[in-house]
């Protein structure tokens, strides 16, 4: 019952946020038509020719008030239709998103899981060697890696491993010769292409997990029940088990939330590596002021964050006996 109410509230939230973004994207300077118009003028057309061309491609120069557009958008939305792209004229937004989503989903989840895992392990090591150089090296590397903006890390990796030392490809998700699907050549090519993007996700992500894990581990280590477990003569393995579960639990909510925010982080990483995912789709849509595509991407990000939140609440109640929904 509570689940149904939470989902209903979430749907309302997604609707509200999407409506706000509907108006926000139209507040940005410029619009799809002027973007295309200026591009054509730059290519050497006369202003009149360019205007004709734009009218020809877009088939119309919409001049309805924003509010009427909003009503049209709502009517479409009720029918499950997110509209069609302006830039890639006529292609439905849902098609664009579903083509891009799998790439992002796979890379983001690999990146998140690996950086979480690395962070947890390093955090426990750093906590158990608290007063040694090991801990300060781990903590400093972690916080510096976390502090450097992702786009700097992405460009740095690209420069090092593609320009200086050409070992990894600079763009794309797979080799031009492969056909996407469950075949070995494609999977190998995919793995080869995602090394740098994943490296960026992991470098940018593991530091915060490491620091958070370190602090919760130290907190739990000092808890009375850890000393009691030792005095009870429990095996080392079981004591580590007690320590691990109690320290990871507080990170769980953070983990679920970052599932959603990683879509946001993917904008910089995917556009740097020209990776055909949601982030790249959104970045391109923003530069061409492709309103429907932008709205679709924002809606997806909003929905992921909100539903990850609901899921985190429910799973937390399952995992931690002290919490009930």
């Amino acid at each position: 019952m509570k689940l149904i109410r939470r989902i209903a509230v979430s749907l309302v939230l997604i609707f509200v946020v999407s409506s706000i973004t509907f108006f926000l994207v139209r507040l940005m300077p410029g619009n799809p038509y002027s973007v295309m118009y200026h591009k054509l003028v730059m290519q050497g057309m006369t202003p009149l020719q360019a205007e004709d061309q734009v009218k020809g491609i877009m088939n119309a120069m919409p001049n309805e008030p924003v509010f009427v557009q909003y009503i049209q958008w709502l009517t479409q939305l009720v029918h499950g239709n997110l509209g069609t792209s302006i830039e890639e004229t006529g292609v439905p937004v849902t098609e664009l998103i579903f083509n891009a989503l799998p790439w992002t989903l796979v890379t983001v989840s690999i990146g998140l899981f690996v950086s979480f895992l690395i962070g947890i392990v390093l955090g426990v090591i750093s906590a158990s060697r608290r007063d040694t150089w090991v801990s300060s090296v781990i903590d400093n590397v972690g916080s510096i890696a976390h502090a450097i903006p992702v786009y700097v890390t992405a460009v740095a990796l690209l420069y090092l491993f593609n320009v200086v030392w050409h070992v990894f490809p600079s763009s794309g998700a797979y080799g031009i010769m492969e056909t996407p699907g469950l075949n070995w050549p494609f999977l190998a090519s995919f793995a080869y292409h995602i090394v740098l993007p994943e490296g960026t996700y992991i470098l940018a992500g593991f530091g915060s997990w490491e620091l958070a894990m370190k602090s919760t581990t130290i907190m739990v280590m000092n808890d009375d029940f850890m000393m009691a477990a030792r005095i009870r003569g429990l095996t080392r393995q079981r004591i580590m088990n007690y320590l691990g579960w109690n320290s990871i639990l507080p990170l769980f909510t953070l983990f679920m939330l970052s599932l959603g925010t990683m879509f946001g982080g993917s904008v910089f990483i995917e556009s740097t590596y020209a990776f055909p995912g949601i982030g790249n789709l959104l970045a391109t849509a923003v530069t061409t002021r492709d309103y429907p595509v932008m709205e679709g991407c924002f809606m997806l990000t909003t929905a992921t964050i909100i539903f990850a939140n609901v899921l985190a609440d429910f799973l937390y109640a399952v995992l931690d006996p002290r919490i009930t929904m």
């Binding site: 029940f225 007690y242 579960w245 109690n246 639990l249 006996p321």
Partner: peptide, 10 residues
């Protein structure tokens, strides 16, 4: 002394 905290909460 603080027996409240000597049991694993999970």
């Amino acid at each position: 002394q603080a027996a409240q905290n000597t049991l694993n909460p999970l």
